[in-house]
């Protein structure tokens, strides 16, 4: 699923595998933890939304629509992005 080194023009990777300053579209959220899923959705991090990764360190910082979010690696691993 995680195709970090794939050379296809469209690929689906987790936010962790994304390069900083790239923009993609959120493909899906994959987590078994209903709390995290609900939280992400409620905050507006939803499939179909464009997402730009701004930073990976010290934590993950990204922009969806007009808002920035900081998340940890654990959460970033649940967000799949096609780009």
């Amino acid at each position: 699923m995680v195709t970090g080194n794939s050379h296809l023009s469209m690929k689906t990777i987790t936010l962790c595998a994304m390069e900083t300053r790239k923009t993609g579209k959120i493909d899906r959220l994959e987590t078994k933890n209903p709390g995290i899923l609900q939280k992400l959705m409620a905050m507006g991090i939803l499939p179909g939304m464009p997402i730009t990764l701004l930073r990976k360190s010290p934590s993950y910082l990204f922009e969806v629509d007009q808002t920035r979010y900081a998340v940890d690696r654990e959460i970033a691993n649940h967000i799949y992005v096609s780009c």
Partner: peptide, 11 residues
């Protein structure tokens, strides 16, 4: 469980 971190970053 270990905590997770999601926070909105206001301008």
């Amino acid at each position: 469980e270990a905590p997770t971190f999601i926070l909105e970053m206001p301008p």
